[in-house]
Design a protein around this nucleic acid. Sequence first.
DNA 1: CGTATGACGTGCA
DNA 2: GTGCACGCCATAC
Length: 90
Amino acid sequence: MKKLPPFSQKVLKITSKIPKGKTLSYKEVARLAGRPLAYRAAGNTLAQNYNPKIPCHRVIRSDGKPGEYNRGKTQKLSLLKSEGVIFHER
DNA sequence: CGTATGACGTGCA
DNA sequence: GTGCACGCCATAC
């Protein structure tokens, strides 16, 4: 494991803090990371450093759309549904 | 140091 | 209501 930059570490940490059955938007995660406007970089950090210990599938877009998990939203929807997260696709 | 990319978001046509 | 384009931040090259 390499030492990730401070922002990435915070984003990952926050994402790992998401309780089961709960979903956070990239904007929320970025906001909690200390950069409310860095939702772009926040999503990138997860994309490049997506760890198996991080429930990144609980991070969705602000539109209520799941976005993309591991380059495929299908898995994301299944995981969230399995956790009891009801997804209302728009 | 500068450029390019990206799991996004909002605005405008 | 849907589609396209631009803008924003941080990281990687």
